[in-house]
Design a protein around this nucleic acid. Structure first.
Length: 967
RNA sequence: GCGGGGGUAGCCGAGUCGGCCAAAGGCGCGGGACUUAAGAUCCCGUACUUAGUGUUCCGUGGGUUCGAAUCCCUCCCUCCGCACCA
C-alpha cells in the first residue's frame, strides 16, 4: 500500500520532468514570477516539519504557473560554517550516536564510510535534499540552477558582493569580542551547539573591572553593577584561592588565575608575575574607585575564581550575597580571629543605602533575603534573590542622595554614566566573560577573545536603513504583523561581524585572505545568483571567468560588453543572454522563510539588495512561515523538538511512503494558518489522506451514474457555485492564502458535489465543467492526485500545464444558489421542530408566503438598490400600493420586520427572496425533503382557495421562510 | 526590562475597520443510513432552553454605544525575538 502512492507519484513526476515543466527559461511573451524558499543549512537530515514552508513555495509557484506566469523556482543549500566539518569528524572517529543517526535516517551503510571529508558530507546531503525531499515531494523546481554556498562559482559571486559592499563604504573594521577556542578559533555559542560540546546556553556578559588601589598595585573586582559603587563598604577575597599578580599596561593587578587567562585573550601583553594567597590579602585596606574611600578586605568563600576576577567588591545594601556574608562575618568571632580581624574594624563596616525603589526599604538586599527566608551564605536561593533585586533595581530604582552628582538618576542611566566616568578616570576597565563554561567540540575551553581588525557590514548605516525601510512599505510582506514590525527590525539591526577566522568552510574574504566570510553574510543577495548558476552548472562559464567586471556587467549593466568578453573569455552573446535573463527574472517576487529569519536573514537580505542593486531589482515579497513542532510537553507546556518517539522524526521519505506526499502537502496547507505553529499529529495527516482517498473514490462513483442529460436547475447551481469557488481561490491565492484555497478546494467544492448528487444531479456536461475547475483547484497543493483525476476524466494534457479557469460573472446564478439555500433552511427548520417536539411526523406541510408579502420584500430590494432601506421608507413605499394599503397593519408589521432584517444586506441578496417561486421550488423538492426527513411533505400556497390550515400556521409564512406544520 | 504575537465552544482553529455571530471549517463525540459485522462512507446533531424561540456566551473586571468576540482602560495568563545562530 505504501508503495502505491510512491509509484503513482513518480509516474507524474516523470511526466512533468519529460515536459520540462520545472525548467525556467526567459520568455518575454509571459509575465515572470520568481520565488524561493530561504535555502536550508546543510546540518544533516531534515524532518517533516521542514517541508512545510518548502511545500508552500511549490504550491504558490504552481498556482502562478497555472495563471499564466513564467515561473522560476530555484533551490540551493547553505553549507557555510563548521557543521559539516564536525559531522565528518564524528563520522571519521565512528561516533556511535552519529553513525546510528545516519543509519536511522536511511543512509546506506556502505555510504557512511565515505563521509569523512566535509565536502563529501555536503555533497551527500545536497543530494539527499534534492532527491529525497524536494523531488520526492513533486516540486517543480529548476534543478539545473541548484547552487550551494560552497561551490567555487558561488564563492566568486560572494566575493563580488563584498567588493560592492566595500565600494559602497559599508565594510568597516573595529575591535570585537567573540567566543573563541584557543585552537579552533571563533565558535558559535548557541543552543544548537553546532560548534561546541558544552555551554550552548551561555551568554557573553560585559563586566566592569573596578580597580582598588593598594600601595602600588590593584585588587581588581569585576561587577555587573558599576552603579553601586557608592555603596561599597568592604572587599571580598576567597581565602582559599591562590591569586596571581599580572602586569597589564604598566600596572600590577591581582586577580584569580582563571581571570588572568581570560584577560590575556582580551588585552595586550598580559603577563603573570607572581602569586599571592587570598588569605594574605585579608585585612588589607584598599581604595575604592569613584568614592575614593579606604575599605577593608574580608574573607568570603562565595567568591568563585572562575567568575569575573574571583575578587568581589561588597555592596551589602543591594547585593544579597554581600549582605548575608557580612552578617555572617559579624556574628562569627572565630572567623574574625582566624584572619586577625579586629572587632572595631568589622563593626566599622556598615551598609550604605544607595538606591530607592518601590517595594523595598533602605536595604533591598536585606529585604529580599528576609522575604525569601535566606539565613546563611551559600544558600542556593541567593542566586534567585540576586537576580530579582538586580532586575528590580535596574528597572525601577533611582540613585539616592549619597550618590553625588548621580543622585536622583534612574539606575539604568546612572549605570552607563558612572561606568563611563570610571573608565575615563582610569579607575575601571571592561572585561567580557561567558555566563557558564563553554567547551569547544575539540574539548578545549572557550574564552572571549578580542579581535582588533574584525570586519563588519555596517547595517546601521542611516541612509541604507532609511531606503530599505521605505522600500519595505511597498513590498508584500506577510504576515502583516511582520510588515509592521520589519520597520523596527531594520533600525535595530546594527553592524554585523561578517567574517571569521579559524577552521571554517566558506568564501575567502576578498580583501584579506585570512578571513572567511561567515554564514549569514553570504546568504543575503544570493537569489540573483540563480540567474547565473544555470550557466556555471552546465560549464558554459567557469569560476575563474567570473570576475568583478563580469558581475558588474551582467548584474549592474556596467562596462563595455566586448571588453568584458575580452577580459573573461566569455562570448559576447552569452554575456548578453545572462544580462537579459537577470533583467527579466529579477527582482525576486517572493522569498519565503521560517520565522527564525525575521530578525536576521530577512533584514540582511533586504539591506544587501538595497545597498548593491538598483531599485528596480529590489525584492517584491516576503512570507514568513511558522513551524511544525513536536507534541506539547505536558510539564512545560512548550512544544518540544519533533522527536522520534512521537513519530514526527521519521525520515521524510518514510512519511511520504506512509501517507503519500499529497496528503502531507495538503496537511501543511490546510492544518493551520502559515503564521502559527502546529503540533505534529499523525492522526491529522491521516485524516487528510482519507479525504484525498474519498475524493478520488467519489469521482469514480459519480462517473458510474452520470448521464447525458440536459442541464437543469441543480446543474446551474453547481456551475454557479464552482464559478464562485474559482473566484474565491483566485483571490485567496493572490494573497498566498493557501489555507483558504485548500478549504475551498478540498472541503467546499467536495461538499457541493455531494449535495449536487443528493439533489439528483447527474448531468455529465455540468459535472465535466465542475471537474475541470475542481481538479485545477487541487493542482497546486496535491498535484499528483489532481493529475490522476485529470487523466481519469479524460482531460487534455497535464493539469500542471493547464491554465486555471477564469471567474466568469455570466455563470453566476444567485437564484439557483438561493433556492438551494432555502431548501436546506427548510429542512433544517423542520428537523429542528421534529426534534424539539419529539413527535414522529406523519406529514409535514409547508406553507409558502402569499404574493403580497413577496411584494413587500420586492419593495425592500428596490429600496436597497437605491441605497436607502429603512422602516419608514419601506412602509411608505408599500402604502403607496393600493392593494397593500388595504391590508393595513399586517403590512406595516411586515415592513418593520423586513426592513430590520435586510437593512444591511444588498439588493442582489434580497432580490431572489422576493422573486423565487417558492411554491414551484419546494414542490419540486418535496420528494427529496420528505425522503430526508422520512416522512411525506406537502407544499401549500397560502394564497390558495380553501387552504387546509388547522393550526393557522400559514400566516407565519414569509418569503424566504415558509411556515411549517408538522402532524 | 525592551519589542512583538496571542488567550474563541471537548480539542484544533476561522472571525477582530461594532450589528444578519450561538459564532465558519476540521477533528472528536452522539444518533441514523448502509453492512452479516467491524471499518470506511453518507446524512443529521453536538452551550442551555424551545414548534422553528428565548437565555447565557468568545481570559478577568470595568467603560464607550441603541448594539461589542470585535473599540477603550485594568488585571491575569501565555508564546516568540533581544543577535553574529541559519
Amino acid at each position: 500500500m505504501a508503495s502505491a502512492y510512491g509509484e503513482m507519484e513518480r509516474k507524474w513526476q516523470k511526466r512533468w520532468s519529460d515536459r520540462g515543466l520545472n525548467l525556467s527559461d526567459r520568455d518575454e511573451s509571459k509575465p515572470k514570477f520568481m520565488l524561493i524558499f530561504a535555502y536550508p543549512g546543510v546540518t544533516g537530515y531534515l524532518h517533516v516539519g521542514h517541508m512545510r514552508g518548502f511545500s508552500y513555495v511549490d504550491a504558490i509557484g504552481r498556482y502562478k504557473r497555472m495563471t499564466g506566469y513564467n515561473v522560476m523556482f530555484p533551490v540551493g543549500t547553505h553549507a557555510t560554517g563548521n557543521g559539516s566539518i564536525s559531522l565528518a569528524e564524528k563520522i571519521r572517529r565512528r561516533d556511535p550516536g552519529t553513525i546510528d543517526y545516519l543509519l536511522r535516517n536511511g543512509c546506506p551503510e556502505e555510504k557512511v564510510a565515505d563521509l569523512t571529508e566535509p565536502m563529501d558530507v555536503v555533497r551527500f546531503f545536497n543530494d539527499v535534499y534534492v532527491n529525497e525531499y524536494w523531488k520526492r515531494f513533486g516540486f517543480l523546481a529548476d534543478w539545473r540552477r541548484f547552487t550551494c554556498t560552497l561551490f567555487p562559482d558561488y564563492a566568486r559571486f560572494i566575493q563580488w558582493q563584498f567588493r560592492k559592499l566595500h565600494d559602497r563604504g559599508l565594510l568597516i573594521q573595529k575591535p570585537y569580542f567573540a567566543p573563541a577556542c584557543p585552537s579552533c578559533g571563533p565558535v558559535a555559542v548557541d543552543a544548537s551547539e553546532t560548534d561546541i560540546s558544552k555551554g550552548g546556553s551561555a551568554e557573553t556578559q560585559e563586566y566592569t573591572l573596578l580597580k582598588f588601589r593598594h600601595g602600588d598595585e590593584f585588587l581588581v573586582a569585576a561587577t555587573l553593577r558599576p552603579e553601586t559603587v557608592y555603596g561599597q563598604v568592604c572587599f571580598w577575597v576567597n581565602p582559599d584561592v591562590e591569586y596571581v599578580r599580572v602586569r597589564v599596561g604598566g600596572e600590577t593587578w591581582v586577580v584569580s588565575p582563571q581571570a588572568a587567562e581570560k584577560l590575556s585573550h582580551q588585552k595586550e601583553g598580559v603577563e603573570t608575575v607572581g602569586t599571592v594567597p587570598g588569605r594574605e590579602l585579608i585585612g588589607w585596606m584598599c581604595t575604592a574607585p569613584m568614592i575614593h574611600r579606604d575599605i577593608p578586605v574580608f574573607p568570603a568563600r562565595f567568591c568563585d575564581p572562575d567568575v569575573g576576577t574571583g575578587l568581589v567588591t561588597s555592596v551589602p545594601s543591594d547585593a544579597p550575597d554581600d549582605w548575608i556574608s557580612l552578617e555572617a562575618l559579624k556574628s562569627d568571632t572565630a572567623m574574625a580571629e582566624e584572619y586577625g580581624l579586629s572587632r572595631e574594624l568589622i563593626d566599622s563596616v556598615v551598609p550604605i543605602p544607595i538606591i530607592d525603589m518601590e517595594g523595598y526599604g533602605r536595604f533591598p538586599a536585606k529585604d529580599i533575603i528576609d522575604r525569601m527566608g535566606i539565613t546563611a551564605p551559600g544558600d542556593p536561593k541567593l542566586v534567585e534573590a540576586k537576580k530579582q533585586v538586580y532586575k528590580d533595581g535596574y528597572h525601577m530604582g533611582r540613585m539616592n542622595a549619597v550618590c553625588g552628582e548621580y543622585a536622583g538618576l534612574k539606575v539604568d542611566i546612572a549605570k552607563d554614566r558612572m561606568k563611563q566616568a570610571m573608565l575615563d578616570a582610569g579607575e575601571a576597565d571592561v572585561f567580557y566573560d561567558l555566563t557558564e563554561e563553554v567547551v569547544c567540540r575539540c574539548g578545549k575551553r572557550v574564552f572571549i577573545r578580542r579581535i582588533d581588525d574584525q570586519w563588519f557590514i555596517n547595517y546601521a548605516d542611516k541612509d541604507l536603513t532609511e531606503r530599505t525601510a521605505e522600500h519595505c512599505r511597498t513590498m508584500g510582506i506577510m504576515p502583516s504583523e511582520y510588515y509592521n514590525n520589519v520597520q523596527g527590525v531594520l533600525s535595530w539591526f546594527r553592524e554585523r561581524a561578517c567574517v571569521r577566522l579559524g577552521n571554517w568552510l566558506g568564501t575567502e574574504f576578498p580583501f584579506d585572505g585570512k578571513w572567511i566570510i561567515e554564514a549569514i553574510s553570504d546568504s543575503t543577495l544570493y537569489p540573483i545568483y540563480y540567474c547565473i548558476s544555470l550557466y556555471a552548472n552546465d560549464g558554459r562559464i567557469r569560476p575563474e571567468q567570473m570576475t568583478e567586471s563580469f558581475f558588474d556587467h551582467v548584474i549592474l549593466g556596467k562596462g563595455d560588453r566586448s571588453a568584458v568578453s575580452e577580459e573573461t573569455g566569455i562570448p559576447e552573446d552569452l554575456l548578453g543572454r545572462i544580462a537579459d535573463d537577470i533583467r527579466y527574472w529579477y527582482p525576486l517576487d517572493l522569498n519565503l522563510g521560517g520565522k527564525e529569519h525575521m530578525t536576521v536573514h530577512f533584514p540582511a537580505f533586504l539591506k544587501n539588495h538595497v545597498a548593491i542593486l538598483p531599485q528596480e531589482m529590489w525584492p517584491r515579497g516576503i512570507m514568513v512561515n511558522w513551524y511544525v513542532t513536536g507534541k506539547k510537553n505536558k510539564a512545560t507546556g512548550k512544544g518540544d523538538k519533533i522527536s522520534k518517539s512521537k513519530g514526527g522524526a521519521q525520515p521524510i521519505p518514510g512519511a511520504a511512503d506512509t501517507y503519500g506526499v499529497d496528503a502531507l502537502r495538503l496537511y501543511y496547507a490546510h492544518v493551520a494558518s502559515p503564521f502559527a505553529d502546529v503540533e505534529w499529529d499523525e492522526d491529522n495527516v491521516l485524516s487528510y489522506r482519507q479525504r484525498l482517498d474519498r475524493i478520488q473514490a467519489f469521482v469514480g462513483e459519480l462517473d458510474a451514474f452520470a448521464e447525458d442529460t440536459e442541464p437543469t436547475g441543480i446543474d446551474r447551481w453547481l456551475v454557479s457555485r464552482f464559478n464562485g469557488h474559482i473566484k474565491t481561490i483566485r483571490e485567496a491565492m493572490d494573497r498566498f492564502d493557501l489555507r483558504m484555497m485548500a478549504s475551498t478546494a478540498y472541503f467546499e467544492m467536495f461538499n457541493d458535489l455531494k449535495w449536487y448528487t443528493r439533489r439528483g444531479g447527474r448531468c455529465r456536461s455540468a459535472l465535466r465543467e465542475a471537474y475541470r475547475r475542481w481538479f485545477m483547484a487541487m493542482m497546486p497543493v496535491t498535484p499528483h492526485t489532481a493529475e490522476e483525476l485529470w487523466e481519469t476524466e479524460g482531460f487534455e494534457g497535464l493539469a500542471s500545464e493547464s491554465l486555471l479557469a477564469e471567474y466568469d460573472p455570466e455563470l453566476d446564478c444567485p437564484e439557483a444558489e438561493y433556492g438551494e439555500d432555502l431548501i436546506r433552511y427548510v429542512m433544517s427548520d423542520a428537523a429542528q421542530i421534529v426534534k424539539v417536539t419529539g413527535i414522529a411526523p406523519k406529514r409535514i406541510i409547508l406553507y409558502t408566503a402569499p404574493a403580497w408579502k413577496r411584494k413587500v420584500v420586492s419593495n425592500a430590494a428596490d429600496l436597497l438598490g437605491q441605497g436607502k432601506l429603512d422602516i419608514p421608507g419601506l412602509t411608505k413605499a408599500c402604502m403607496a400600493d393600493p392593494e397593500l394599503r388595504s391590508r393595513g397593519k399586517a403590512v406595516s408589521d411586515l415592513c418593520r420586520k423586513v426592513a430590520g432584517d435586510h437593512m444591511r444586506s444588498t439588493e442582489e441578496n434580497v432580490r431572489p427572496i422576493a422573486e423565487t417561486d417558492e411554491f414551484a421550488l419546494l414542490s419540486s423538492a418535496a420528494g427529496f425533503i420528505g425522503d430526508d426527513l422520512s416522512t411525506k411533505v406537502e407544499v401549500l400556497d397560502s394564497d390558495s382557495e380553501g387552504l387546509y390550515d388547522p393550526a393557522g400556521k400559514s400566516k407565519a409564512a414569509v418569503p424566504g421562510r415558509p411556515a411549517i406544520l408538522i402532524e
